[in-house]
């Protein structure tokens, strides 16, 4: 066994510092108000898409349920802050809790199905939730939606302009990304990977497959619920039309485009899909066609998304320059040492 000096951490730290500086200082100062609004929307979607990283990237389960829980979180927040007037932080936590509870009950049923049948049952769920969101006027405001929801306010400081909202959203987004990154390194994360790769091997390794899947489902719902809460406080408005099946497929596409197994990849995908309509204004009519074709090509040529491409490239670089620490196990280490 031998450890080399860890240059990895150094490089990683430097890159993240620069990225943070750019995101917190450079982006808001160079972007127009309109651009900030677009970016804010992207970050909200990003938080929901992180749930797909947990479900699909880590657990190998294709789920469209994100949009349902985003809706549940959104209406929970809307009701909490409109009818009870609770502070933002309580409203956000409330949204997370309500969607987790809903996910626990719904997931307990749906996860009895395996593979593609589970996937389709989540589609059914999206239809049911959409129908409820549109018709349950007392709680959702029906097709007209609910307006006048308070903006972000923490400890007496109010976010008013889009770039102030951006600071809040960015911070929440980064925290969520860090959470998911860390989740991968926990026993639950490993159990999820084992369920994805081979359910029988997972059982033999002492993994309770059903409970592991359920945990992932609930965590994904918490992220989606939080995204819903962020949405109502950012837009001050919520309507059922935001929670359609089409939006849900867009989430999956965002996650897959960037690389579903990694929060950075999902970030790339979310930003790309949100900015594409801005960059391709003249092609507006064909934009969804482009998505569809893009997804089909992506699945054939790089199922791991853009991030997969990038990590492959980094791996090669690392091997070439022998960067990074490596723990050697077994016979060959004696030869080297």
């Amino acid at each position: 066994m031998k450890k080399k000096i860890n240059t990895n951490t150094l490089i990683l730290g430097g890159v993240s510092l620069v990225a943070l500086l750019v995101m917190y200082l450079v982006v808001p100062s160079v972007s127009s108000v309109y651009m900030m609004t677009v970016l804010n929307g992207a970050i909200i979607f990003y938080v929901a898409c992180l749930g797909i990283t947990v479900m699909l990237g880590m657990g190998g389960m294709v789920s469209f349920a994100a949009i349902s829980f985003m809706g549940i979180g959104a209406y929970a927040s809307a009701n909490l802050s409109l009818k009870l007037g609770v502070p933002t932080i309580v409203s956000m936590l409330g949204a997370i809790l309500v969607s987790m509870l809903a996910a626990l009950i719904i997931g307990a049923v749906l996860l009895r199905l395996s593979g593609t049948f589970f996937t389709f049952s989540t589609v059914a769920l999206v239809q049911i939730s959409y129908s409820i969101f549109t018709n349950w006027k007392e709680v959702t405001g029906g097709p007209d939606g609910m307006g006048g929801i308070s903006t972000f306010e923490f400890f007496g400081v109010k976010a008013v302009k889009p770039n102030e909202n951006y600071m809040v959203l960015l911070t929440v987004g980064i925290l969520c990304a860090l959470f998911v990154l860390r989740l991968k390194k926990t026993n639950l994360g490993r159990a999820l990977s084992s369920v994805r790769d081979n359910e029988i091997a997972a059982k033999i390794m002492g993994v309770n497959v059903y409970r592991t899947k359920l945990a992932a489902f609930v965590i994904a719902a918490a992220l989606a619920g939080l995204a819903g809460s962020l949405m109502v406080h950012n837009h001050h408005f919520v309507a059922a039309t935001s929670f359609t099946f089409d939006q849900s497929t867009t989430f999956v596409i965002m996650a897959m485009l960037g690389g579903v197994s990694n929060p950075f990849g999902v970030f790339m995908g979310t930003v790309l899909i949100t900015m594409l309509p801005e960059w391709l204004k003249p092609l507006q009519e064909y934009i969804r066609l482009v998505y569809g074709l893009g997804v089909m090509l992506l699945m054939v040529f790089m199922p791991m998304g853009l991030w997969g491409l990038f990590t492959g490239w980094v791996k090669k670089l690392k091997a070439k320059f022998k960067i990074g620490h490596k723990v050697m196990i077994g016979i060959s280490s004696t030869k080297e040492g």
Partner: peptide, 23 residues
């Protein structure tokens, strides 16, 4: 042999460590 083919060796070994020392 059944391993997590898409993960590295370390993650596979940590998984068995999870069984040995449940946490």
């Amino acid at each position: 042999p059944r391993f997590l083919e898409r993960s590295d060796i370390e993650e596979n070994m940590l998984l068995s460590n999870d069984v040995a020392k449940p946490m």
